[in-house]
């Protein structure tokens, strides 16, 4: 039994950063991996987004949590991101999952544009 537990631990070690700096580096590593994976995502999921659009979406998501200073919180966020990216790259997601993720950004932008247009029209 004990040997079994050690085997599992060596296979999937618990990733908990010792310091805040290490947790931050882990997040930057995730960001680099996200950007590196953009061409594969476009190819695998037949996406019609621009490279820079997708990069902007990733960047927005990371900047959203730029104020987080707790090590454990950063670890939690990095773990969620890593899992999502792993799932997307292993084709465990469907196209609609990925499109939905990127659509939230572009959709918001479109709405605000139309709202602005309408505002101008009513004025």
């Amino acid at each position: 039994m004990a040997s079994n537990i050690t085997a599992i631990k060596t296979m999937r070690p618990a990733v908990v950063s010792f310091t805040y700096e290490l947790a931050r580096k882990r997040c930057l590593k995730l960001y680099r991996n996200c950007i590196r994976s953009i061409p594969y995502l476009i190819q695998h999921y037949n996406l019609s987004y621009n490279f820079s659009e997708m990069k902007l979406k990733f960047r927005e998501d990371f900047l959203q949590f730029s104020q987080v200073k707790q090590k454990n919180e950063l670890d939690r966020l990095a773990f969620i991101g890593e899992t999502e990216l792993y799932d997307a790259m292993s084709l465990l997601k469907t196209r609609s999952h990925v499109v939905n993720y990127f659509e939230t950004h572009t959709h918001k932008k479109q709405l605000s544009d139309s709202e602005q247009l309408l505002k101008k029209f009513f004025e």
Partner: peptide
């Protein structure tokens, strides 16, 4: 730091290499 990561990924693509994470940090 995010911009720097962007630049490094662009460099990676242009030169056809992969910068290891320790070096990139």
């Amino acid at each position: 730091s995010l911009d720097a990561a962007d630049v490094l990924v662009a460099v990676e693509e242009d030169f056809g290499i992969e910068i290891p994470d320790e070096e990139a940090d």
